[in-house]
Computed example of a mutant assay.
Amino acid sequence: MKTTIKSILILAVGVSAASFTSEIIEKVSVKSSSISWEGKKVTGNHEGTIQLKDGFFQMEGDAITGGEFVIDMSSINVTDLEGDSKGQLEGHLKSDDFFGVEKFPSAKLVITKAVKKGNTYAVTGDLTIKDTTAPVTFDLVKAGNTLSTLLTIDRTKYGVRYGSGSFFDNLGDKAIYDDFTLDIKLTL
């Protein structure tokens, strides 16, 4: 009997403590959020979009303390080409030469630290592409219910080396730069 009462008291204290925590989960609107990408090569660039599959921020009061975001890699869309050229580039980006979407259908960003400076957060996180995780840092700006950033990613850190002058010689004007950018706008 004493063990049962003690267990109930411990459970009650635990539940009470959990109810007073100020950390909340703030879901991101997938429909209202957007991610645009740009990749550059010696002879020009390509642009497109990719869809957010799911995401949330961990909040303490009105401050971001963490978060997690999943990107649907099968949604890679090229916006600067049309017709066969568009389809060919989308297919190539989804192939094993680049993001291997059939085997790796999503990418994930986990925010591990966010330091608030006015309406900007200095963010540290772990980005996973093709089952390879590497740290990233970026500034995230909050304006009302929208958070935005321009994130530069070195694709070679995630095993995406196709056409990289850092790994292949004599590419000439076929070289593709290692960095690509994501222009991210998240709506709460």
Rank of each mutant, 00 (worst) to 15 (best):
M1Y: 15
T3H: 15
T3P: 04
T3D: 15
T4C: 07
I5Q: 02
I5E: 07
L9V: 13
L9K: 03
L11E: 03
A12D: 03
A12M: 09
A12I: 00
V13G: 10
A17E: 01
A17Q: 04
A18M: 03
A18L: 09
S19E: 00
S19T: 09
S19C: 06
S19L: 13
F20I: 14
S22Q: 11
S22M: 14
S22V: 11
E23A: 15
I24E: 15
K27D: 10
K27G: 07
V28E: 05
V28N: 11
S33P: 04
S34G: 06
S34T: 13
S36Y: 00
E38M: 04
G39L: 01
G39W: 02
G39C: 01
K40L: 00
K41A: 02
V42R: 01
T43N: 01
T43I: 01
G44Y: 02
G48L: 10
T49H: 14
Q51W: 00
K53T: 02
D54L: 00
F56K: 06
F57Q: 03
F57S: 05
F57N: 01
F57A: 02
Q58Y: 03
G61S: 12
A63Q: 15
A63K: 15
T65Y: 02
G67S: 02
V70G: 09
D72C: 14
D72V: 11
M73E: 11
M73K: 12
S74D: 12
S75W: 06
N77D: 15
T79N: 11
D80V: 09
E82V: 14
S85N: 15
K86C: 08
L89S: 07
E90D: 08
E90R: 12
L93F: 00
K94G: 08
D96P: 03
F98R: 10
F99M: 14
V101D: 06
E102D: 11
E102I: 14
F104H: 11
S106T: 14
S106G: 07
S106E: 13
A107Y: 11
K108M: 13
K108F: 06
I111D: 10
A114R: 06
A114N: 03
G118V: 09
N119M: 10
N119L: 09
N119C: 10
T120N: 13
T120Y: 09
T120H: 09
T120G: 11
T120E: 13
A122Y: 08
T124N: 12
G125I: 00
D126R: 01
L127P: 01
L127I: 07
T128C: 07
T128V: 02
T128Y: 07
P135D: 11
V136R: 01
T137L: 04
T137F: 05
D139E: 14
D139H: 07
K142R: 13
K142Q: 13
A143D: 14
A143V: 12
A143W: 01
T146L: 07
T146N: 15
T146A: 12
S148Q: 12
S148D: 10
T149F: 03
T149E: 05
L150V: 10
I153T: 01
D154Q: 06
R155N: 06
R155L: 08
T156Y: 07
K157F: 09
R161W: 02
Y162D: 05
S164T: 00
G165C: 04
S166F: 08
L171K: 15
D173M: 07
D173Q: 11
A175H: 04
A175Y: 00
I176C: 03
I176F: 00
Y177Q: 05
D179M: 08
D179E: 13
D179T: 05
D183M: 08
K185C: 03
K185Q: 14
T187D: 04
